[in-house]
Amino acid sequence: MSSSEREDDTGGVHIAVPDFQDIMLPLLRLAGEGEQSFNESLEKLAEEFQLSPDDLNELMPSGSPKFRSRVSWAKTYLKKAGLLESRKRGFFNITERGLEVLKEDPSVIDVDFLMQFPEFAEFREGSGKPRKIRKRRRKRAGSRKERLTPEERLERAHDELRKGLAAEILDIVRNSSPEFFERLVVDLLVRMGYGGSREDAGSAIGRQGDGGVDGIIKEDRLGLDVIYIQAKRWNSSVSRPEIQKFVGALQGKRAKKGIFITTSDFTAGAREYVSKIDSRIVLIDGMQMANYMIEHGVGVTEVAYYSVKKIDNDYFSE
C-alpha cells in the first residue's frame, strides 16, 4: 500500500492526501486546460483524487491545511521549473515549456523529472546543472535526504521552506500595484534601519515613476548621510544602461550612495559596471528583496516554532 493510501472502515483502499509530487502532473494537466485560479484548482484536484471532507480538513503540525499546502508546493516547484507562470495574482497558467512536457505524455512528474530544467536545478541545489532523466526511476529526491542526519534534514527542510516562501512573496509583489510596491519599499528599508521613522521615509520616497518609486532616504536615524533609492517593479532584467542612468541621477544630486531595488534581476553587465565605479551602489534583486522581507518580518508571519535541543554535557558530568 502506498503512502497516499489507507484502508477505510469497510476494508477497502481509500486515497488519502496525496504527496506533493503526485500532485504535479494532475496540476500541470489542469493548467493545460486554461488559466486556473488556485482556489478552483484545489476543488478540481480534490475531486480528481477523491478526497473526503476529513482529508481536506487534515492539518499539518503548523495548523495549515495539508492538501492546500501540498498543492501550493507542487505549483511552486512547477513554476521554478518553468512549466507554470502567474500573470495575475491568485491565478496561474501553463507555459510553452509546460505544453511541450504534456505533449511528451509523461507517466509521472516529480522532483527527479524537474531536475532536467536548469532553473529548477539552480533553485533546488544551486548548481544550475540539469540532470538527465533515468528511464527506470521511481525513487524520489527524498531518498537522498534519508542519508542525512535528522539535524541535517531539518536544516535542509528549513532552507526549502524559505526558498518556497521567497518565491511566493516575489510572485505576489510582481502582481501588486505600484502604490503597494511603494509602501513595501518604505516598510522594508525602515525595518532594515534606514530612513529614521516611517514618516520620514514615507515623505522621502513617493515620487511614483515607471512601475516603481524613487527618492532620497536617510542612511540612519541621525541623517548623517543620505541614500538615493531607485525601485523597479519589473519582470525583465535590469541592464547596464538603467544603472548608468541611476548613477547619473546620483551625480546630479551630489549623492555618493544608492540602492537599486527590482522585482526581477540584474544582467551580468549591470553588476560588472557597479563593481568598477566609484559611487557605492547596492543592487537588490527580486529574490534578495524577498529574503530581506522574510529576515526582517515584512509581509510574513510566524506559524510554527521548532526548538532543537542537545545534551547538556555539564549536567551529566560527575
Rank of each mutant, 00 (worst) to 15 (best):
L148I: 08
T149S: 10
T149E: 00
E151R: 01
R153F: 12
R153N: 02
L154Y: 09
E155W: 02
E155M: 10
E155F: 09
A157T: 12
H158M: 09
H158W: 07
H158Q: 07
E160T: 05
E160S: 08
L161S: 10
L161Q: 05
K163L: 08
K163R: 12
G164W: 06
G164E: 11
G164P: 09
A166N: 07
A167I: 00
A167F: 13
I169W: 10
I169F: 13
L170I: 03
L170V: 07
L170W: 01
D171E: 15
D171M: 03
D171A: 06
D171F: 02
I172P: 02
I172A: 14
I172H: 09
V173T: 06
V173N: 12
R174F: 09
N175S: 10
N175M: 03
N175A: 07
N175W: 02
S176L: 08
S177D: 10
E179Q: 04
F180G: 02
F181C: 11
F181K: 05
E182R: 12
E182S: 10
E182Y: 00
R183T: 07
R183K: 15
L184N: 08
L184G: 05
L184F: 14
V185P: 04
V186G: 13
V186C: 15
L188Y: 11
L189F: 13
L189E: 08
R191Q: 15
M192A: 14
G193H: 14
Y194M: 15
Y194H: 14
G195E: 01
G196L: 09
S197A: 07
R198P: 11
R198N: 12
R198M: 14
R198C: 11
E199Q: 05
D200V: 13
D200W: 13
D200C: 07
D200H: 08
A201G: 14
G202R: 06
S203Y: 05
A204Y: 05
I205H: 04
I205V: 14
G206S: 11
G206W: 01
G206Y: 04
R207M: 05
Q208S: 06
Q208W: 02
G209C: 05
G209M: 11
G209H: 01
G211V: 04
G212Y: 04
G212H: 02
V213M: 07
V213A: 14
D214Q: 09
D214M: 05
G215H: 07
G215L: 06
I217P: 06
K218R: 11
D220F: 09
R221W: 05
L222F: 03
L222R: 10
G223W: 00
G223S: 01
G223M: 00
L224S: 00
D225M: 09
D225K: 10
D225F: 15
V226F: 11
V226P: 00
V226E: 00
I227Q: 01
I227T: 12
I227V: 15
I229Y: 04
Q230P: 01
A231Q: 05
A231K: 12
K232T: 09
W234E: 15
W234N: 12
W234T: 11
N235R: 06
S236C: 04
S236N: 14
S236Y: 08
S237Y: 07
V238T: 14
S239K: 11
S239I: 03
S239E: 03
R240K: 15
P241N: 03
E242C: 05
I243C: 02
I243S: 04
